[in-house]
């Protein structure tokens, strides 16, 4: 992690840090919608499949700091392995996504971990996101998802990109965890990120 150049804020210079986060999960699991929801604070129900890679960015202000999160949204299709694998090495965090209305996408999680590890993503912070929880038909119970994530030591969030529920809590918690694990991050920045994550989780509760 390198601290990039300092960007000038309003009369005040904010110290800029960058982190890289990727999305993983099956085709049509809702990765792009989730990322769009977070970055642009809107929901696009008619979202098209990602071909290759997409990109989202969201600047986060924490007092004197700016944390710029680069979200690399990777296509989930089975043919795209070699397109994805370049991203695993450099990613500091990952949202591992499954769709609660599609059991196969839940059962594929293990395979996703395997793929990312094969390509060098060993120290990546992984958070599990269960999407489409606003849908009436559910094929994966919250308990199952939570237990699977716990068995791997990953934090777990149920989210809905449509209502926005859980989305902010998921991402802010992920960023806080990344900041805490990446060497060289200022302690007060990490503390601020943890505070923000706590309050986002509070809003959802």
């Amino acid at each position: 992690m390198r601290a990039a150049k300092a960007a000038s804020g309003k009369n005040k210079r904010a110290k800029l840090y960058r982190i890289k986060v990727i999305s993983m999960g099956d085709n049509a699991a809702g990765k792009s919608c989730l990322i769009k929801r977070y970055c642009e604070e809107k929901f696009v129900s008619k979202y098209i499949p990602t071909i290759g890679v997409d990109y989202g960015v969201k600047p986060n202000k924490y007092n004197d700091y700016e944390l710029r999160v680069n979200l690399w949204d990777l296509a989930g299709g089975p043919d795209y392995t070699e397109v994805r694998n370049e991203f695993y090495k450099e990613a500091q965090g990952c949202v591992l996504v499954y769709d609660v209305t599609n059991r196969a996408s839940f059962e594929a999680l293990e395979g996703w971990l395997e793929e990312s590890r094969k390509y060098g993503a060993e120290n990546m912070v992984v958070f599990v996101a269960a999407t489409k929880t606003d849908q009436p038909v559910r094929k994966v119970f919250e308990k199952e998802g939570r237990e699977w994530a716990q068995s791997k030591g990953f934090p777990f969030f149920e989210v809905s990109a449509s209502s926005g529920s859980g989305v902010k809590a998921l991402f802010t918690s992920l960023f806080a965890r990344i900041l805490a694990t990446v060497p060289g991050m200022p302690e007060d920045l990490t503390a601020l990120a943890v505070q923000q994550a706590n309050s986002a989780r509070g809003e959802d509760a």
Binding site: N27, A28, K46, Y47, I48, P49, G77, P78
Partner: peptide, 13 residues
């Protein structure tokens, strides 16, 4: 199965 996942997302407008 793959085709089915993509059809509703192909030019949905």
């Amino acid at each position: 199965a793959q085709v089915e996942l993509d059809l509703p997302r192909t030019f949905p407008n």
